[in-house]
Amino acid sequence: MSIIELNNSQIGHSQYNVALRDVSLTIYRGEKTAILGQSGGGKTALLQHLFHFPNLDQESAFYMQQDLGLIEQLTVFHNVYMGRLSQLPTWYNLLNLFIPQTKMRHAILPILQKLGIAEKENTVVKQLSGGQQQRVIVARALFSRTATLFADEPITGLDQKQSNDVLTLLLNSFQTSVIVLHDVELALQHFDRIIGLKNGKVYLNELSQNLTAAQLHYLYQ
């Protein structure tokens, strides 16, 4: 069943600044979709467009952006907690800001353990390395417990082993995922469907089992 359907959409900041033309594509529930393409090729614009698709309101969705959106002055616990800020009551959010509740800590700690940053729970995010910050935002996404994930290059700054682990974790934790990637091999290995962008258009939209690495490398030429 589809959750998003685009028919000949123009995607961009305004009618004079169009990043992608005539986009027609469908995102199916339960499918793992990768978006590939050169830098500046409209990947982020497409991802944001999909995230703000009106009919998505029934689905709960989480958006992981490239510049992370972490609040550097708060601890890892609080930054992860923020994944559910709009789901939990306000008084409870304020309570957790000053006194982190055991229930929430029990929910967040296992996620941090999986990502190998459990000992940083009470550290201020400003003091973490880039790779650690990347994993905090992954933790926030996992804690949000939404059905759909939209992620813009969620594994930048991680080494190969970590990239693999984090990607597997993300894909297993969300019913549906749409992820912008750079790595062709990872895309083929982990995703059901690949959307390739080239020259301001959707160049390919295919199940990954029907694709080869060579075809995908063409996107970057």
């Binding site: 998505l56 969705a61 958006y63 959106g69 609040i71 800020l85 306000t90 304020l94 949000s144």
Partner: peptide, 19 residues
Amino acid sequence: PALVGSRQQPHRFSNYFYI
């Protein structure tokens, strides 16, 4: 600063104190 990632805006108080 940037948003937290959800489509629904958190309550203005949560937004204020957390972000």
